[in-house]
Amino acid sequence: MKIAFYGSSLLSSYWNGAATYYRGILKALAAHGYDITFYEPDAFERQQHRDIDPPEWARSVVYPATAEGLRSVLAEAGGADIVVKANGVGVFDRELLEGVVALSRPDALRIFWDVDAAATLDEMRGDAAHPVLAALPDIDMVLTYGGGPPVIDAYTGFGAARCVPVYNALDPETHHPAPPQPRFTADLGLLANRLPDREARIEEFFLKAAAALPEQSFLLGGNGWHDKPMPANVRAIGHVGTNDHNAFNCTPRAVLNVARDSMAHIGFSPATRVFEAAGAAACLITDAWEGIEQFLTPDEEVLVARDGQDVAEHLAALTEDRARAIGAAALTRVRAEHTYALRGEQVHRIFQEHRQRLTEAA
């Protein structure tokens, strides 16, 4: 079966936190025999910051971020059995969604794949003319990057025929334990782009902890932090490509996950970084959010912090032996229960069930 997938970028993680998620899910679906084409715009300098080559398991189409480029890729929607519009493409999001609805075949499975459900739902609550609201009657299902029961209830309340969370996970072939690198040496490392709905939480959980532990070293990777005032023991190193994530996770004594405001509020939304860190056997400290126990066991496989003071206390008490034990337990858990192979199997079953229902209704 052919899948046409319209998303932000498969080839670049630059200002694109969904890249690892797309790669993991689509690679797993390709293993089930799906013929996948991923359409991404040439925008936001992503093509100048590619961190993978076009993969063997999907056809990659990069199109100009112009009206003509948009028309050229939407014209291919009619040839697919499954047509997916992901949110957060960044250019022509409304037009892509409307085009998927209008130009896909009547018998095609139409999917809106929401990689930021909390933010999308907030927008929908404040805008009766929101394009997703307008498209829901013609969409067969909504798949989400996370969110659990609150997101399912919200989407079905807005009229979605079906909503299923497909959580982040680990691809053990790409994210795994690796030798440490001196350039990533620190007591606590954090990978996070500077975004408006995350900055205050990073100030609380990371910078406040750094200020409380001036004798310890803190490492911050990600875009946008170059002009942010920071304690002297924080080193900001800019964008870290996915090829360096394993070494980044394996080198510091611990690594930190800080959810964005919306995802922390709604819960059940583990970031890709959670599984990347666990897959590298890193000792992970995460901000507290509802549903963490569904993925990792607190105090055994992850350390949970309510605020920056908690982060500082965890780090001050963390021995190298305990850090290694927590990381090893997390690695065992995610390899057993949270791989993209398992997520791909979940999505494959969802597709099969949909086709079976259509057959029975015919």
Rank of each mutant, 00 (worst) to 15 (best):
L26H: 07
Y34A: 15
I36C: 07
E45A: 14
D51E: 06
P55K: 09
S60A: 09
A65T: 09
T66P: 02
A80I: 12
I82D: 11
I82V: 12
A86W: 03
D93T: 05
E95K: 08
L97Y: 01
A102P: 04
D107Q: 14
L109V: 14
L109T: 13
A117K: 08
A119H: 14
D122P: 13
A129Y: 15
L136T: 01
G159H: 02
A160Q: 07
D171I: 05
D171S: 10
T174S: 13
A178G: 11
R183C: 03
F184K: 09
F184P: 06
T185E: 05
D187W: 04
D187N: 02
G189L: 02
L191W: 00
L191E: 07
A192F: 04
N193C: 15
L195K: 08
E203C: 14
E203Q: 14
F205Y: 02
S217F: 07
L220N: 00
G221E: 03
G222V: 06
W225E: 13
H226A: 15
P229S: 12
N233K: 00
V234S: 01
H239E: 06
G241P: 03
N243R: 15
D244F: 07
F248P: 08
N249T: 13
C250I: 00
V258M: 05
A259S: 06
S262A: 15
I266S: 10
G267Y: 03
V274C: 06
V274Y: 04
F275S: 09
A278F: 00
A281E: 06
T286Q: 13
E290C: 13
E293P: 08
V304N: 01
D310E: 12
L318G: 00
T319C: 04
D321L: 02
R322I: 07
G327D: 05
V334A: 00
R335N: 01
E337R: 09
H338C: 06
L342S: 12
G344Y: 01
V347Q: 10
H348G: 02
Q352K: 15
H354G: 12
R355F: 13
R357L: 14
